[in-house]
Structures are given as structure tokens and as C-alpha cells.
């Protein structure tokens, strides 16, 4: 399973009052040649296969992929 550590960020403990944050260099904010600050953001895509399977329930076999 992918998790925060692989991405260079800290997983945070929900029971802790401390703010979650990043420690990996991948997410550090550095000065950049263009005169601004380099900022990293994440795009995530989740495909929920379980729901795909559910959608085909009731369809004839010929209609399935």
C-alpha cells in the first residue's frame, strides 16, 4: 500500500495535537530561479474496483467486460 512515508511526508497521529507536516525534501519549499517559492502539490486518483464489480451485478455475462 502506498503511504505517506514513501512520498516523503510524515503520517500524522490523529490522537496527537501536533500538526501534520512534511519532512521529506520532495515537499520542501525552496527558492526558485523564477523568483518565487517552489511549492509541491499532489494529484490523487482513486479507482474503487469493488464498486466497479458491484455495478455489473445483475448484468448478463455477455454484457460484462
Amino acid at each position: 500500500m502506498l503511504h505517506g512515508k514513501r512520498l516523503g511526508c510524515d503520517r500524522f497521529d490523529l490522537a496527537s495535537p501536533a500538526l501534520p507536516g512534511f519532512s521529506g525534501s520532495e515537499f520542501s519549499i525552496d527558492a526558485d530561479g523564477f523568483g518565487g517559492m517552489s511549492h509541491t502539490r499532489l494529484k490523487l486518483r482513486l479507482i474503487q474496483l469493488g464498486f466497479f464489480a458491484e455495478a455489473f451485478v445483475g448484468l448478463p455475462d455477455s454484457a460484462r467486460l
Binding site: L7, F22, F27, I29, M37, R41, L42, L44, L46
Partner: peptide, 29 residues
């Protein structure tokens, strides 16, 4: 990644197997 803080929703999605892609952005004051 507002203020360098990963969204708690990211945590949920990663735990469910979401595929992350890192993007660079520039902030100019």
C-alpha cells in the same frame, strides 16, 4: 499541500490505494 500540510483527505485516499502524482507549483509574493 496548503502551508506544507498534507490534506487529511490525501491520507484517506492513499490508504485506499489512490495513485499520487506530484506536481510543482510556483508561489510569487
Amino acid at each position: 499541500v496548503s502551508c506544507g500540510v498534507m490534506s487529511p483527505i490525501t491520507q484517506v485516499l492513499l490508504e485506499r490505494g489512490a495513485t499520487p502524482t506530484v506536481q510543482k507549483a510556483q508561489l510569487i509574493d
